Simulated scan of single mutants.
Amino acid sequence: MKQVTVFFLVLVLVVAAAAGLYRLYDNTRSLPEEAAERFLTRWLTNENGTLATYIQEGGEEEEDEVRGREALAETLGLWMEYVYEKEDDKRFDRAYSQFRRLFLAEDGFVYWKLEEDGTAEVTSNALIDDIRIAGVLMKAAERWGKDYYEETAREILTFVETHNMYDGVLTDFYERRDKYAEDTITLSYIDAALLQDLAEADMLSAGPAAATGALLMDAPLSGPFYPKAYNVERGEYEYDEEVNILDQALAALHQAEAGTVSEPFLAFVETELEERGLVHGMYDLDTAEPVVSYESPAIYALLVLYAIEIGETELAETLYERMEAFQVTRRTSLYYGGYSIHDDNTHIFDNLLPMLARQQWEEQ
């Protein structure tokens, strides 16, 4: 009888230990994508359904900056890409309706940001937002047979081609109040492959699409780094002394999607991971040494997409694991499923871009 009792006691202890190990594993493994979606719904969604930029309210800011619960057209475009890739036509249509209702003016002008209540105080658009949204609307029209998506894309692109133009090149923004187009194009704004697709679909003139795309494809590197921008008026590339890797990763991704791989930039990312075990947020242009200590899941997400695009699977896996380390996996946390929470706050891009990267990672 005593032996039986001991046996059952040991069995209970083994089961308990196994359950403990499972809980430990369960709290550190990759979470289901619904966890990140629920985090966005709970913490980064305004009452009117727009996606907020931060959890916390912010203070006063310049017109070209973002604070607190303001909503960005860029964010909505990324969300539309996410639900399009999930083949979720219902959520895509809701996002489209929000876009038409709040972000799109009657003449095709797109407000680049909104206040928390959905009102617009800015008077400029942003090329990267407009092109992304038009592109995903074009694809959605073809997939789901909804002509009004394509009609809206054409409205956006007609305005862009009429106003966001300087000497035959598409530029960063059009200032509606003062009626002028910026004379500079940021390199990370240039999605050369998408511009070509839009031109081939007769939604954008071939000349400006090709001229703008060529500025990215022909950009001269400084060491491993892309220029920050191209000044159309002066006809020259511009470089930041402190390089933002988010911009660099997006430029590299867009160039790769158009068929060109920058070996110096790829080698830079690989070396950073090998020697430091991470990629910092900003680097000195001349020395390629980090000038900040922080990392960003948004940067890792773009680098994951870049590595997948160029077929570097092992690199993509390393970057993916680094990205996932930023997600809150403790189920008892208020911020379960969110990424990069600091002082009860996070940026929407540090959450939405990892969601897009994870989607691509799991589909490859």
Rank of each mutant, 00 (worst) to 15 (best):
D191Q: 11
A19F: 15
L334Y: 11
S222H: 08
A214W: 03
E312S: 01
E309R: 08
D147K: 07
E362A: 14
R177Q: 15
D89M: 05
T158N: 14
V279C: 06
R276C: 13
A126R: 02
D130H: 04
T162W: 13
E312A: 05
L157M: 06
A126L: 04
E317H: 10
V269N: 08
S293V: 08
A251N: 11
E121T: 12
D167C: 15
V279I: 01
T332E: 12
K86I: 01
Y189N: 02
H347L: 06
P224G: 06
V10G: 05
Y174K: 13
D202G: 06
I308S: 02
F103A: 10
D350R: 11
F173S: 05
L170G: 04
A126H: 00
E106A: 03
G223A: 08
F103P: 11
L198M: 01
K90L: 12
L285Q: 01
Q360C: 13
N27C: 00
M282D: 09
P208A: 02
I128Q: 02
E87V: 05
E81I: 08
E81C: 15
L76Q: 10
F159W: 02
D284M: 08
G108E: 11
D344M: 09
Q98T: 03
L305D: 04
D218P: 03
H342V: 14
N48R: 12
G259H: 02
I341K: 01
N48A: 08
S124C: 13
D202E: 09
V10Q: 02
D129T: 07
D183N: 06
